[in-house]
Design a protein around this nucleic acid. Structure first.
Length: 299
DNA sequence: CCCTGTCAAGTCACG
DNA sequence: CGTGACTTGACAGGG
């Protein structure tokens, strides 16, 4: 079990998700920003290793406009050495990596144009992980997508489109249950046809489920991960009673987290804290988990 | 320098 | 049919 947080670190004076406006696009600008973002990513990873945080989600903003037609620049070659250096560090320290394309990435849209743009976006994500020479335990997590008024058809389209994906994408893709449309059961149905592993979002599962307990959900999702996929990934967050539905909590409820670890103690997984204060809560989680026999410390 | 409207992309709920 | 939420900050242009 490794513990982590997504995309940004609030303690460091360094932002790895800087971007700029499409209107001000230029190659010089792109190079400047990507250079900054890669340096900062490396700095965050070093911070994480120093704090026993060995699970991290790399921001989709690492290379702004990478999948946009405006981008003709060969950033893969230009930053090859830097990606190698970071990849080396990740492999040496055995850091688990995920990426999560944003809500515009939908492979089951009836609109072929939406699918085509999403495909380009997924290829960009796969290139980032490939450039770092990470194995297929580094994952790209995606929701099944829209319902478009007909869930069965939409699931079928997802499966068809998945089967069309190039290998560099499909070998890394995992699906995640969401809190409005596609539950764990829906994901299991898709997984049974496609063998896609299921990333469990424990909070979404709490909001929308088919009666499975958290422990049962962990067990079901866990069984969809093959040897080459690594162990189950979990996105964890906790909603205090008064917050708006679906909103992530601001800070860690250590009791709730400890309880979650306890009820899932017969399963191993890597767990990402989707909590607004990011690494601060992750450090509390590490503190709470350090005596757990599943917990993996930095070398 | 400071203020603030706006930002690549999609879907869905709501009025 | 149009707008805001999702997530949120910060870019960038105007004063």
């Amino acid at each position: 079990m490794k513990i982590g947080y997504p995309c940004i670190n609030l303690s460091l004076d360094c932002k790895g998700d800087r971007t700029f406006r499409l209107k001000s696009y230029s190659e010089e600008r792109l190079v400047e920003i990507v250079d900054n973002n890669l340096n900062c990513l490396f700095e965050i990873l070093r911070f994480n290793v120093a704090h026993n945080l060995l699970f991290f989600r790399i921001t989709s903003d690492l290379v702004p406009f990478a999948s946009h037609p405006i981008c003709k620049f060969d950033w893969q070659s230009h930053f090859h050495n830097k990606f190698q250096e970071i990849g080396n560090y990740i492999r040496t320290n055995d850091i688990r990596i995920s990426m999560h394309p944003d809500q515009f990435t939908l492979i089951n849209s009836p609109d072929k144009g939406v699918f085509e743009r999403s495909l380009q976006e997924l290829i960009y994500h796969a290139h980032v992980l490939d450039l770092m020479e990470l194995n297929t335990s580094a994952k790209i997590q995606l929701h099944i997508g829209g319902v478009y008024k007909d869930k069965i058809t939409s699931i079928n389209i997802f499966v068809e489109r998945f089967n069309e994906l190039p290998d560099l994408v499909s070998k890394r893709l995992v699906i995640e249950n969401d809190d409005r449309s596609y539950t764990l059961q829906d994901c299991l149905e898709v997984s049974s046809i496609t063998d896609i592993p299921i990333l469990l979002d424990s909070f979404h599962h709490e909001v929308k489920n088919s009666g499975e307990s958290q422990a049962e959900a962990v067990s079901l999702a866990s069984s969809t991960w093959r040897q080459e996929d690594g162990i189950l990934m979990i996105d964890y967050s906790y909603q205090p009673g008064d917050g708006r539905r679906g909103a992530h909590s601001y800070t860690m409820n250590v009791d709730h987290f400890t309880q979650f670890l306890d009820i899932t103690k017969s399963y191993d997984f890597d767990i990402m804290l989707e909590i607004k204060d990011k690494e601060k809560s992750s450090l509390k989680a590490v503190e709470a988990a350090k005596d757990d026999k599943r917990f993996v410390m930095a070398i």
